[in-house]
Design a protein around this nucleic acid. Structure first.
Lengths: 206, 206
DNA sequence: GTTAGCATGTAAGGAGTTACATGATTTT
DNA sequence: AAAATCATGTAACTCCTTACATGCTAAC
């Protein structure tokens, strides 16, 4: 999942909830998805144009744009094709789904993702992080003597990765214990069942 | 500090320790600096060429390259100008120093950075993260009702940021209490410089 | 001998940011 | 009246990744 596809996916996902114009879309992209903190209009508008030319979204001139006072703005809504395209992508698990940015975007639309798929993505991400952890440890071993700051940097990186794995474990456990195929709520911090799924490598204590 | 400058800075810094050829340089860049996990040769070699044309590094054909068996390789060493250029950059604090990637690279060369500068960078980074934290909280407040996965994503992001701030606080405290303005050489196993509180152990909240 | 790893390098193509251009409305 | 915010859009520029080209040596 390249960044471009990700953005299209995210835009489709947001428009799924309600029609929006570009400016508002960008705000949502910024605040809801971690991946697009610094999305520029130079990227967003061409993206919208692309989606439009594919017939996935359709623009509506706010003819009564004056009503809100601002410049005439273009509200985009998802077409039926767009809805289908999103449905198609949201339940597809390509191996890019567990890369840093893509993962966040996937999770942001878990509410519309089937549990099976959610679990695969969560576990794919977990495996990815465990793998990264292994690389980091290997690096540390092969590096020999390093100064304390570099050591601190590496230690922090490893801690961060381990924390992320633990976080994933909680999500995975909740996912397994929950009965819903497509959820309502989950905000329960005290998940009763903590079924540690296959703890391969995540918690060694040398 | 754009990525390009960062790479040049990092290359200069690595060559400061010892001459190296491109392939090895890449390995070091990968394992020591977090920022260049996936650096391609298509980026590295042109960078080396650039530095060479600026007279900051100078190539040495391993005429006895056959000795090691491999293809004839080009070992780069830092020129006096290169040394000066690095010295100049390592003690300069531009506001890009606290962005995600640049920060890691700066820290990786703290062993050759003056304490004053180290502190400014550390504190700049801290301020940057605190600011980001504020934005995240604002976002959360302004978002209204969100599904539990998105909530979990945000919560994890906030936790991560807070952990990073705590980590910085430890480094800053150590920096303030330590006596040395500039530590010994990088490769010196017993430089008394400073022992960051519990680093390479890498264990945090259970 | 053929694959895999070491080693350097170039060119095309893709992709995003920056800067620019335009215009309305609200706030200071 | 100026500045800030809302709002859309384009083009140039920059930069990186990908793919390709080359060639040596070790190992299978």
């Amino acid at each position: 999942m390249r960044r471009r596809e990700m953005l299209e996916f995210a835009v489709l996902g947001l428009l799924h909830e309600s029609p929006m114009h570009g400016y508002e879309l960008r705000r949502q992209l910024n605040s809801r998805l971690g991946a697009f903190r610094a999305l520029s209009f130079g990227t967003l508008y061409p993206c919208l144009a692309r989606l439009q030319s594919q017939g996935l979204v359709s623009p509506t001139q706010d003819s009564a744009g004056r009503a809100t006072g601002r410049r005439q703005r273009i509200t985009y809504r998802l077409t039926d094709e767009g809805r289908a395209a999103f449905a198609d992508r949201v339940d597809r698990v390509d191996p890019g789904s567990w890369e840093d940015d893509a993962f966040d975007v996937r999770v942001a639309f878990f509410a519309r993702t089937e549990r099976e798929v959610r679990l695969r993505i969560l576990e794919g991400r977990r495996a990815r992080l465990v793998e990264r952890m292994a690389v980091m440890r290997e690096d540390r071993a092969g590096l020999g003597v390093i100064d304390s700051w570099t050591a601190a940097l590496h230690a922090h990186g490893e801690d961060e990765t381990m924390a992320a794995v633990r976080w994933l474990d909680e999500l995975i456990a909740a996912e397994r214990s929950g009965p819903s195929a497509r959820p309502g709520t989950l905000t329960d911090p005290n998940h009763p069942a903590f079924n540690p799924p296959d703890q391969s490598g995540s918690k060694e204590n040398p």
